[in-house]
Nucleic acid binder design. Sequence first.
DNA 1: AGTATTTTTTCATATTTATTCTACAAAACA
DNA 2: TGTTTTGTAGAATAAATATGAAAAAATACT
Lengths: 179, 179
Amino acid sequence: MKKYFGICIFCCTFAPNLNNYAFMKNKRNRLQVISEILRSTVVGSQEELLKMLSERQCEVTQATLSRDLKLLKVAKTPLSNGTYKYILPSYNKPLPNQGAFNTLIAHGAVLSLEFSGQLAVVKTKPGYASAIAWDIDNKATEQVLGTIAGDDTILVIPREGITREDILDMLNVTFAEKN
Amino acid sequence: MKKYFGICIFCCTFAPNLNNYAFMKNKRNRLQVISEILRSTVVGSQEELLKMLSERQCEVTQATLSRDLKLLKVAKTPLSNGTYKYILPSYNKPLPNQGAFNTLIAHGAVLSLEFSGQLAVVKTKPGYASAIAWDIDNKATEQVLGTIAGDDTILVIPREGITREDILDMLNVTFAEKN
DNA sequence: AGTATTTTTTCATATTTATTCTACAAAACA
DNA sequence: TGTTTTGTAGAATAAATATGAAAAAATACT
C-alpha cells in the first residue's frame, strides 16, 4: 500500500520520517534550520545561506539547497534597497509555537489552528470538519460558545473571557483523547 | 538640483514622467504591461515573459526585464507542480478599486460583500457558496485564515492585521481571474 | 536651438540558480 | 533473505538571472 509522504507545513518535515537520525545530518533538520534562518535573517543568495547552514553544522551543496528551497516554496524577492531576500511562504512564517498541539497536528486530521481576534479557526483534512467540530462542541462547552463547520474548516467561537491559551489547552485535551 | 524619481506603486510609473510618449514604447507602459501579464498569467521565467511582451509590442532585452522585475519587486516563487511563478507584490496585485468588484458583483455569482467587525460575509447565488469559498481559500491564504460556506453565504475570517480593503482587493483579484 | 544632465537600454559577461545524471541508502516488498 | 522501489545528495553542467560599462535616448537648462 502506498504511503503518502507529504511535507508538513508546520514543522517542515516529512510525516512518516519518524526515526531519529544523526543530529543535523538529515533533510528534516536541515529544512527546519533553513526555515529558522530565513524567518530571522535577511538572506540574499543561496551561497550566503549555504554559509549560514555550514555554521550550523549543515554541510550541503548548492544543488541540494536549491531543491530544499523549492520544496519549502521559498521565494526570492527584491527589496527596496536593491538587494534580494528569500522569503518563506506565509504559512511557514509564523510558526505559532503551540507546543504539544503541534505534534498532534502532525499526525491527525487536524491540520492547523490559528487565531484572529477573538475567533479561532481550525483547519482539518477535507470532510473531517463536522466530526471534529462535534467533539469540540461537546468537550468544551465551558470555553466554547459554539462552532461552525464547513468541509475542512471549523470556526470556533470562544466564550467571553476565554484566552487563546485556554482554547489551545482545550484542544490538546480533546485530541489527546482521540489518539 | 536633484529630482526624485520614485516609482508609483499604484500606476507603476515614475511620477515626473508626465508627458505622452509613443504608445507602448516606454518604460511606464512596459511596467504596466508586465504587471498585467503577471496578474493574469502564470509566468515561470523571464524568457517566457519576454516573449509575451514582444507579442504586445514591447521589445526589450532580458537585462531590461530583469531590472523591471526588480523595480516592481516581483518575486519568483516555486509552485506545487514543480514549476515557478513570478508574482507581483501584494500592493500591485489588485487595483484598489471598489468599482471593479461591484461590476463583477453585478454579473456574477457573487452578490454582495459586507463587513461586520473583523469578519466579512459574502453572499452568492444559491449553491455557489462552496465553490467560491474554495477559490477564496486557495487564492488568499495570506489574507484569510479560513472560510465557512453555507449554500449562499460565505463567512470569511481574515487574519489579524488584514484590513477591509485588503479583503476587497483580494476578492477583486480572485474574481478577476475567474473571467 | 545646442549643451549638459539624467535616465534608460543594450551588450557582454559574471553570478546565481536549477537540473541532469549518477550513486547510494533506506524502506517496502516478495 | 534478495529484489525493487523510493528518497536523498553530490558533481558537473545547463539554464536563468543580475550587473558593469558604454551607448543611446530622453529631459532639463540656458
